[in-house]
């Protein structure tokens, strides 16, 4: 185990490295993220409106919106265009559902050389798996609380 003297030295070193390491300009990056994310959401809104005008109810329109955005993202990933969008937009490309689709498609395409089962099959979830697991788990946990509160009559 490192002594407290060593730990202090390590901490000093980390602070020193942090000080001299340049970083991307945050306001600039935030602006790029704002426009990239905003545009993707606007496109989503357009799909929502188009589906609604064709007579879809709200939920169905929402499903179509996810579906088409995911399709678009997978195609752009295959054509090696989505990485460029991600490089430019940062969180603007990561946060929308298209970022989730990109992580699934990128893994599927990259690991095809390792076979259908252990390549694509396992590794397709490399980045997306945690999202699905913890999404399901957190909603399940919240569901239990909701269920108990309902039994107790706190929520009707």
């Amino acid at each position: 185990m490192p002594t407290s003297e060593q730990l202090k030295k390590q901490k000093q070193y980390q602070q020193y490295v942090k000080r001299i390491t340049p970083s991307h300009s945050l306001p600039l990056n935030m602006t790029k993220a704002f426009f990239t994310g905003g545009l993707i959401c606007t496109l989503g809104q357009w799909i929502l409106n188009a589906a609604a005008s064709l007579g879809a109810d709200k939920e169905t329109a929402g499903s179509w919106c996810s579906l088409l955005l995911i399709l678009l993202s997978v195609i752009l990933t295959g054509l090696n265009i989505y990485p460029e969008i991600g490089k430019f937009g940062g969180a603007g490309a990561l946060v929308p559902i298209t970022g989730f689709a990109n992580s699934v498609a990128a893994s599927a395409i990259e690991f095809q050389t390792e076979g259908q089962v252990f390549g694509i099959g396992c590794k397709i979830f490399t980045i997306a798996g945690p999202v699905i697991l913890y999404g399901i788990l957190s909603s399940w946990g919240l569901g239990i609380v909701y269920y108990i509160l309902k039994l107790m009559g706190v929520i009707l």
């Binding site: 970083s23 991307h24 945050l26 990056n29 935030m30 602006t31 993220a33 704002f34 426009f35 990239t36 994310g37 905003g38 545009l39 993707i40 959401c41 606007t42 989503g44 809104q45 357009w46 937009g89 940062g90 969180a91 603007g92 990561l94 946060v95 929308p96």
Partner: peptide, 20 residues
């Protein structure tokens, strides 16, 4: 469209702070 743009954009911009 404007609401979708600015709310979606703002969420992404906030997450960018988290990333950076």
């Amino acid at each position: 469209y404007i609401n979708a743009f600015w709310v979606g954009g703002a969420i992404c911009a906030l997450v960018q702070i988290l990333l950076d």
